[in-house]
């Protein structure tokens, strides 16, 4: 059990980061404001989590102008999707072990 917990990715060690990744793996590009609304986060909070995921190269950023407004969108990279999947698999394994432990 201890062994498997160390396999959990520290880059995802926060529910908001897991939330960001959840949204990005099922969508192509997601705008900053959409993320903010879906996750119900403040600007500072969201920005810091995005920065952490970006520096891990799990997400990529696209900036462009729509009319005169700058618009920032985010997408999960292939590495990010793979890491997220591994993380979910590990979570699942932990839960399975916990359940088996309960049965005994």
């Amino acid at each position: 059990m201890k062994n498997i917990i160390t396999q959990l990715n520290p880059a995802f060690d926060h529910r908001n980061r897991l939330g960001i990744m959840s949204i990005l793996v099922v969508n192509d590009w997601v705008e900053y404001n959409t993320l903010k609304e879906l996750l119900n986060l403040t600007d500072g909070n969201l920005a810091s989590h995005l920065k952490a995921l970006e520096s891990a190269a799990y997400i990529t950023i696209q900036k462009r102008f729509v009319g005169r407004k700058p618009q920032t969108s985010y997408a999960a990279t292939d590495a990010g999707k793979a890491a997220f999947k591994t993380h979910l698999d590990t979570l699942e394994a932990i839960l399975r072990m916990a359940r088996e432990g309960e049965d005994d």
Partner: peptide, 10 residues
């Protein structure tokens, strides 16, 4: 929570 976010965003 993750499942809900995936559904709601897509």
């Amino acid at each position: 929570e993750m499942r809900a976010l995936m559904e709601r965003s897509s």
